[in-house]
Computed example of a mutant assay.
Amino acid sequence: MSAGPGQRRGTRPVDSAGAATGAPRLVLRLEGLAIAAAALLAYRHMDAGWGMFAALLLAPDLSLLAYLAGPRAGAVFYNAAHSYLLPALLAGTGLALGRERPVAVALIWIAHVGIDRALGYGLKYPGGFGLTHLGRIGKAQADGDQKPSPD
């Protein structure tokens, strides 16, 4: 199979590795912004205290430390901390038990993920930190760099 225009043999175009492009990418980023805004409003309504919000807002980014063990482990831990699944479970548990603190922590977590999505930081692929479901980020994006496909 021959390589297409602007593509070396054995590589994929920058945005074809499972990343959203065009209007779907914009919708995903706007969705992140809407979710972050809703989480902030719900947190304000709870009156849980902005000190806790400030202290925990960047806590999900501690998952970046898993990249010290390599890109595959980094992607797994980053994605676990940057999807809505775990904070939704935490919020549901807090609501089911009638506890406000887990719900407040979940709202902070959800706000973080929404802000990241709005800024274009998507879930990571194991091929490297800059490969996300919202497209490439970092130096690779600016350079238009293409990496050989893992297949």
Rank of each mutant, 00 (worst) to 15 (best):
M1F: 15
S2I: 04
S2L: 12
A3C: 13
A3R: 14
G4Q: 14
P5D: 12
G6P: 08
R8P: 03
G10R: 12
G10Q: 09
T11E: 15
P13D: 13
P13T: 10
V14K: 02
D15P: 01
S16L: 05
T21G: 07
G22Y: 04
G22D: 03
P24A: 08
R25H: 01
V27Q: 01
L28Q: 10
L28H: 04
R29M: 15
E31L: 12
A34C: 09
A37E: 02
A37Q: 02
A37Y: 00
A42M: 14
Y43P: 02
M46T: 09
D47P: 02
D47K: 13
A48E: 09
A48G: 13
G49M: 11
W50D: 09
M52I: 09
F53W: 14
A54C: 09
L56K: 05
L56H: 08
P60M: 10
D61R: 02
L62I: 06
S63N: 04
L64M: 10
L65C: 03
A66R: 03
Y67T: 04
Y67S: 03
L68Q: 04
L68C: 03
G70N: 08
P71N: 14
P71F: 09
R72Q: 11
R72Y: 08
A73L: 12
A75P: 02
V76S: 11
Y78G: 06
N79R: 14
A80Q: 10
A80L: 15
A80Y: 08
A81M: 12
A81H: 04
H82T: 10
S83C: 15
S83T: 15
Y84A: 10
L85D: 10
P87F: 09
L90N: 04
L90W: 06
A91K: 01
G92M: 07
G92Y: 07
G94K: 03
L97E: 03
L97I: 01
G98F: 05
R99P: 01
R99T: 00
P102R: 05
P102F: 11
A106L: 07
L107W: 07
L107K: 06
W109F: 13
I110M: 15
H112I: 10
V113W: 01
G114P: 00
I115Y: 00
D116N: 08
R117I: 01
A118S: 11
A118H: 00
L119G: 08
G120Q: 06
G122T: 02
K124M: 02
Y125R: 04
P126H: 01
G127A: 04
G127V: 05
F129E: 03
H133E: 07
L134T: 01
I137Q: 09
I137Y: 00
G138T: 12
K139I: 13
Q141R: 15
D143I: 06
G144T: 06
D145K: 14
D145L: 13
D145W: 12
P148C: 06
P148Y: 11
P148R: 11
S149D: 15
D151M: 07
